[in-house]
């Protein structure tokens, strides 16, 4: 652990976590893993989580900071990981889009451009535009608690930002 918020750097209590001479962005990148639910749990358990790779992965899956994680996965500066992530992500997304094209919007309809995919008795607007979007809306409503988790991540990121604004 890289030391959470509220360290005492010799001269008494301070909320600052930025080392002398360290830039704000470098400080944010260094402490990104500490400011999350997992980081907090790791601190509480004296490094029990970060010392085990499987547990570390699972804990970050459920409690990692998605905001800083997303940012530093794609825009980080460390060890060329951002370039790696962008190229892998681009290929992955391309495959998904290629797989999705021509199937989701046309399969199972009378109006499909490919006759062999047409089904008798169904028609109308493409599924993505029809009343089934109400079901999609309901589904995202059920997933809404994910936003609550994201809200916690926003709080952690703000706390990290404040910590990195104040020098140790």
């Amino acid at each position: 652990m890289g030391g959470g918020g509220g360290g005492s750097g010799g001269g008494g209590f301070t909320l600052g976590v930025r080392s002398p001479g360290q830039t704000f962005s470098k400080c944010m990148e260094t402490h990104a893993s500490d400011y999350s639910i997992t980081g907090l749990a790791d601190l509480a358990t004296k490094g029990a989580i970060s010392s085990n790779s499987t547990v570390n992965f699972a804990a970050n899956v459920f409690g990692g900071n998605s905001l800083t994680g997303t940012y530093y996965a794609f825009a980080g500066t460390t060890q060329g990981s951002a370039y790696n992530a962008v190229t892998t992500g681009a290929g992955f997304t391309g495959n998904i889009i290629a797989g999705g094209m021509g199937s989701t919007l046309t399969y199972g309809r009378r109006t499909s451009a490919i006759m062999s995919l047409n089904l008798a008795g169904k028609g109308g607007l493409p599924q993505a535009l029809s009343s089934s979007s109400a079901g999609v809306k309901g589904f995202f409503g059920k997933m809404g608690t994910g936003a609550l988790r994201l809200a916690a991540d926003v709080g952690f990121t703000l706390a990290e930002g404040i910590g990195c604004m104040i020098p140790k």
Partner: peptide, 12 residues
């Protein structure tokens, strides 16, 4: 995200 980046969140 971790699969795409190949490492743990914020720990390359």
């Amino acid at each position: 995200l971790m699969a795409v980046s190949g490492h743990i969140f914020n720990k390359p």
